[in-house]
């Protein structure tokens, strides 16, 4: 057992050192951090502009003597400004996972060290766990950098210091982001192990990424009847939420199909889960975690199941010595 632990630690340390030196990884990480910063800065400035516009409207109304017509001031929910961040993690975070998985296997394949390691008395599970842990450190480091950036930008530009509940929610978002990114890490490792040509493995992985991350959510979104008019169909018809639900109940087959399409993607589960936690989905805004998880636990189970399935699949592929040694 002691040996197994030290083997895992050695592999994890090696993985960490190798990946952190990779130009490709560093390029992607810098890009993601930049996008996180841009995204929150944009929404913070957007809010500041809205407040400035509101104040000038109030002044005009007051000068006109119409104080009774002053609308309520726009409210800033700091976690809601995380929407862009969550969506960028969906896209770029997944690519970071793919590149880490690809690099992890391509290095070994290129130097033929994988065959060498497998010919030694090292368990397949130790190799997989070592690689997983080493890359987990990197992903967590990247996400931590993102978390700090988000926290300080919301504080610095938005002028709001997150309370303890909001910090916990932010930490949960980053924990689920870690699950999500590591799924793509495992997927990319599987394909890089499976395919003889690493270039083909990377392209197939990008195709799967395209389907999961962009195409499936896009189909679900554009099929939504409420999205057929800018600003929302039901809003344009002055229909409230209960009436909308009553109408849509008559289109249950269509809605079930649309929902099934969306649910086949890990990205959609990840998005639903984090949109609930951050209150981007209005129903959960300002609610406690118990209320949120009462509805969202299924999405959490889905995200975790995708990761677990990919992890065990990677183990199964690496256990197939014939595939690793002869590439067929």
């Amino acid at each position: 057992m002691g040996n197994s632990k030290s083997t895992v630690a050695v592999i994890a340390r090696k993985e960490y050192r190798d990946s952190i030196k990779s130009k490709l990884f560093l390029t992607l990480v810098s890009f993601l951090i930049l996008l996180i910063v841009v995204s929150i800065v944009v929404s913070s400035f957007d809010f500041k502009s809205q407040v400035a516009d509101y104040r000038s409207s109030v002044k005009i109304l007051e000068d006109m003597g119409k104080s009774s017509e002053i609308p309520s001031m726009p409210q800033f929910f700091p976690l809601k400004s995380m929407r862009g961040v969550i969506e960028y993690i969906e896209i770029i975070g997944a690519i970071i996972g793919i590149i880490l998985g690809y690099l992890s296997i391509s290095r070994e394949k290129g130097k033929r060290t994988l065959q060498l390691v497998l010919s030694r008395p090292i368990k397949t599970a130790d190799i997989i766990t070592g690689k997983f842990i080493g890359n987990s450190f990197l992903v967590l480091l990247v996400l931590l950098a993102g978390l700090f950036s988000a926290f300080f930008i919301i504080w610095g530009i938005g002028g709001l210091l997150l309370n303890i509940i909001e910090v916990i929610k932010l930490l949960l978002v980053f924990l689920f982001s870690y699950f999500y990114i590591m799924f793509f890490f495992c997927l990319s490792s599987i394909l890089s192990l499976w395919f003889k040509s690493l270039s083909n493995a990377l392209i197939i992985c990008f195709i799967i990424w395209l389907i999961f991350v962009l195409i499936i959510p896009q189909i679900g979104d554009t099929m939504d009847p409420d999205n057929q008019i800018p600003g929302g169909f039901f809003k344009s018809m002055n229909i409230d939420k209960p009436q909308e639900e009553e109408i849509m109940a008559k289109f249950s087959t269509y809605e079930t199909t649309r929902n099934a399409i969306e649910e086949s993607s890990i990205t959609k589960h990840y998005e639903r889960l984090n949109f609930a936690i951050t209150g981007i989905k209005e129903k959960y805004n300002g609610k406690d975690l118990r209320f949120i998880f009462k509805d969202s636990w299924k999405d959490l189970v889905w995200v975790f199941s995708f990761l677990l399935a990919a992890y065990f699949m990677e183990y199964a592929v690496l256990s197939n010595k014939r595939l690793i040694f002869y590439g067929d």
Binding site: V38, Q50, E90, I229, P230
Partner: peptide, 25 residues
């Protein structure tokens, strides 16, 4: 996103793209 403040997923819906109008200075 910089020009419209639309998040990535909204940019994949042709209808939301049509509805974009800058809502602040």
């Amino acid at each position: 996103q910089l020009t419209s403040a639309l998040n990535p997923s909204a940019l994949l819906n042709p209808v939301s793209i049509q509805g974009v109008a800058p809502h602040s200075r």
